[in-house]
Design a protein around this nucleic acid. Structure first.
Lengths: 128, 128
DNA sequence: TCCACTATAGTCTCTTTGTCAATAGTCACT
DNA sequence: AGTGACTATTGACAAAGAGACTATAGTGGA
């Protein structure tokens, strides 16, 4: 019963080519970084993610990531009192530990970027 | 029976912090890129991976990645005749399709690097 | 009342990954 | 010849992660 609720929530497409399915390990740091700008709820964060090139992330994954972050103690959540356009929202707030974790993530991302650059360079070198 | 054979093969450490366990989606392109330099076997490729900052990749994952690449038609394998220091080696060779796939991977990696940079920039902006 | 939109969450299943271990050939030392 | 270290590949099972579908539920407009 019911037509379709919510949104499409992204399509699969299995294989193993570049960017096949698995988005990245960037979702968690992107969420933490967004929360640096103030507490927000999951649904609102999704649109915010486009800024980082994470436009196609399924809502379900965002919610799951957020509960993961909460389990790590990096964010806390409260149901908001003044709900605005629908059912109650779970609003997430960055903790002090979350800020520290975010900084570690940034170190890791800088390393990842360096590794990617090394690989790109090696490719250019070998292709010639 | 038996003490320990093979090597340690990396340690776990589950959690979900930065770089927790899961290395990256860089293994496949790194292997293909290595094979640009000539055919090699899995065990030999492992040491070669350090060049790209993929030093800690478990052997098992490398072998699995290689059979995946073969299933995609990006590499072919043969057992070598003149084995040198142990049991027969399965030697992998890059195919034409593999070269094309590698180029697509490079496009994807450049995009990933861009996304990481955007996130790093956003972080610096917000921290201030 | 019905439908669309906002908002979060449960669950089933398939795939991927981690881990342990089996198999097996070569080489150096004793 | 036997032992152990190193080279080399693979099987099998369990745990984790991600996708897809569905359930629930409040608000607001036609």
């Amino acid at each position: 019963m019911h037509g379709r609720h919510g949104r499409g929530q992204a399509q699969g497409g299995r294989g193993q080519g570049p960017g096949s399915g698995r988005a990245d390990h960037m979702l968690e740091p992107a969420l933490l970084c967004s929360l640096l700008g103030g507490a927000t709820h999951g649904y609102g964060l999704v649109e915010h993610l486009a800024e980082f090139g994470l436009a196609a992330v399924p809502l379900r994954r965002v919610y799951r990531a957020l509960s993961g972050l909460e389990a790590m103690g990096w964010v806390t959540s409260d149901w908001d009192s003044a709900q605005t356009q629908g059912p109650p929202r779970r609003v997430y707030t960055l903790t002090g530990e979350g800020k520290a974790a975010l900084e570690e993530w940034m170190v890791y991302l800088r390393e990842s970027r360096g590794a990617i650059s090394r690989l790109l360079d090696a490719y250019e070198r070998r292709r010639a």
